[in-house]
Structures are given as C-alpha cells and as structure tokens.
Amino acid sequence: MINAGDGTNEHPTQALLDLFTIREKKGNIGGLDVAIVGDILHSRVAKSNIYALKKLGANVRVIGPPTLVPAYIGELGVEIFTDMKKGLKDVDIVMMLRIQIERQGKGFFPTSEEYFRNWGLTSERLSKAKKDAVVMHPGPMNRGVEISSDVADGRRSVILEQVTNGLAVRMAVLYLLAGVRT
C-alpha cells in the first residue's frame, strides 16, 4: 500500500519529493537548516518532512502562530518560533505550508489579512534567510495569505520544480513497489 496522503496524518511521497528537490539544490541534506512555516498542527506534509529531515540529519525549525504550532511538537526535536524574522534567520530552506481552512475549522487566527501580516512570506522576511536559500511550497498556494506572489514566482522559488520532481519521484515509488526486479 502506498500512502498518498491521509487526512491530517502523513504524506510520505510529498516528503520524498521535497527531499529529492532539496538534494538537487543543495547536494546533501545533513546539516542544513530548514524552516517549516504555517499550520504545522494540521499538516501531513510538515509531519512527514520533519520525520524525513530529522532522519537525514537536518536541523528543523517550525514557525507559526501558537494556535497552529503547539508546544508539544518540540518533543519531536524541532525548534519552535512564533516570529518570522527570528525563525527565518540564516536558514537554507524555507518550506511554506498551505493554510488549510477546510481542515482547521475556525478561530486559529483572526483573519487572512492578519495572518499574512505576521506569517506571510515576503521578500523582506526572506532576506533574513541565507543568500542562497530556496523557497518551497507543496501547493496549491494561497497567494497573499501565506506567501506573496513576488516570492512565489521569484528566482529563489523552486515550487514548480517540486511539481516536476513529484511526478518523477512518484513514478519511481510505483515502479519500485510494483515489484520490478533489477
């Protein structure tokens, strides 16, 4: 059985394609500083990436409002930030998450506008990260909610490459698990 993303639990093929993309861009994963930003609590993408990144030796930090980043997540060995500028400082990878209204229910933050003001990824905030930092997002994006269009379409965005790699990585998963012998 291949898990193609189950509810708010896990999304392992997304983590595989994200790791593939990171390795393509950075050569290796161990020792990198990775910030995952947004709704960690309800995100299957965040969880699978945290497991995979930790396993391969990356330093993971999570950033978001306390309502979406409960303190017990720290027990997974990740650092928790509520402030974007502090959280993004000197990271190699900025991994954005979609704000998922349908999974969240109401009341985790007041409005999309206020969310963007505090946790939206803008060029100014991105400037705190390393100069060669790349921006990722599992898509689909809410432009103007968690990410500004100039960053989403900017030169540091690898979001479309994630989509391309996703196809290849998932083909590989199916190929290997279909029992093909080499």
Binding site: D6, G7, T8, N9, K47, Y72, I73, E75, L76
Partner: peptide, 10 residues
C-alpha cells in the same frame, strides 16, 4: 491531546 495526537493526526 499531546505529541501522540499530533503524530497520529487526531
């Protein structure tokens, strides 16, 4: 509620 509910996605 706790780490286990988070990891189970519940």
């Amino acid at each position: 509620e706790g780490l286990r509910s988070f990891t189970l996605g519940l």
